[in-house]
Amino acid sequence: MIPAAFEYHAPKSLEEALRLLSRHGNEAKILAGGHSLLPLMKLRLAAPRCVIDIGRIQALRYIREENGRIAIGALTTHTEVLESPLLRAKCPLLPQTAWEIGDVQVRNRGTVGWSLAHADPAADYPAAVLALDAELVAASVHGTRTLRAMEFFVDMLTAALLPGEILTEVRVPILPPRTGTAYRKLHQPASGYALVGAAACLTLGPGGIVERVAVGLTGVGPKAYRAVAVEKALAGKKASEKLLTGAARHAVPEHVEPLSDLQASAEYRTAMAVVFVRRALESALARAQGKPR
């Protein structure tokens, strides 16, 4: 468990970090909490020539309300998300998701930015940011650009960040009234990551009609995705247990190739995606109806 030699930089500002990144290009890796990168380096599965530790850039660590949205700095830890009164009140899906990540130590160290930038197919946040239709802000020496969650996850371990870009911020909506959210997860028994993780965000309209619904799934395929077919089966219909159960059956569309590994076959993953989507929807619905769950 001994990494290869590397050059280490600890920039104090984002600008400095971006300059370093553009100077070192492909040879460099960003280090945030290090919980994903360091294990890879210690096993020498990753051997970047240069490590840019952005951990000290305090300016990337915040949760604040801005222009009708909540902006979260990329260096915010899972614990900070979990404990944020602002998020708990106005966008509880993120704290609900953070709660399911790893253990106390992992939550104290791991950052929101990674979870997204690393695009681990079993990470939890991707499901939530998809269900929230979040915006992700990437910065480089050339400026910043904003991506939608739907276009952010490209493939296993591959996010839509360009070389030289750092993910700086995640923006999530302030949820309207009569909205319920839930994250339900089947843990991989060894690592604690998601074998299947389903995030649901559901808003009820007059007469108990599903006005808006979004479902994000992680763990099932090579990348997290929106379960669009599930959403279609629900939208505009009167919410009921039967409706949710039927809709959940569309959790794994044709184009998703379910992963298969030691811990779960593709068949089991697919079946569990259906179960956990339904459970997430049921909890979200109950919360939207104001029932405690």
Binding site: E100, R184, H187, V275, F276, R279, E282
Partner: peptide, 10 residues
Amino acid sequence: KRVGDGRGRR
């Protein structure tokens, strides 16, 4: 009939 609400081991 299902038991849990998916809160699993947590």
